[in-house]
Amino acid sequence: MDLHALEPEDFDREVRSFEFWLDAVRDYLPTADGLELPPDDVAPEDREPLITVLSSYCVGEMMALEGAGGLIRSAPNRSSKIFLSTQTVDEGRHLEVLTNRMTELGVEDVDAEIRRRANPYLLEFRERLLDLIAQGRWQQALFVQNVLLESMEFAAFCHHIQLADARTRAILEGIVKDERRHMGFGENELGRLIAEDPGLRDDLSHLRQEFDYLALGSFEHALTELRIPAAEHPTLKRGYLAAVKRLGFA
């Protein structure tokens, strides 16, 4: 089927379907007998900082799982509900592979470790996102979940991929492919809504200012915990701001 020959409504329906999701993820999902990850080669001195980073990722993915699941109810049409269902399972899978990675690194009680190391900015981000979802504010919640949160994760993972051990890098590369799809849905859906209601852009800009504080704060907190020199902190923050800008929300 030539997707680009479809009418806009049929195109949306097709690219948001279970079938399309399955085709998209098929090549990079681990199976029982395929896609072997590289061997574990984390240096002993890198183990603790990696566990701290993975703990933050798990808080982010748990939030993304709860957020995507919660958004389904207020999604305005079937194709959005189905897309968000594929996103829900993506987020659950990210959480699963990241907690497995922590177990591989010798963490015995992963839940306790995540709670102990949880980034307070991320916890506040989660609370406020779930509030928007509970209020049924579809446009605002979608913006925070699929633009801001996904851009945060995208920037953090892309930055980490350049520095990570081979096994963690392979895991993160798979996750980033999913994030691109999620960001694309947010951009597409919100772009359409803004075209119908130009005032929405201002509303989202105000919301962005509130959440940027939490996003940038969470990066600062994580980088400080990892004892990364202050001179290197702006790189990651710029990555996040650039990702949001690319989605048309400068």
């Binding site: 748990m62 699941g69 389904i72 699963e96």
Partner: peptide
Amino acid sequence: SGLINAAPDEASKRFLATQTL
């Protein structure tokens, strides 16, 4: 999908993600 937020543990949340899809 609505039960994911109500689930008391992470493993149940992940199962409910597969059920949602």
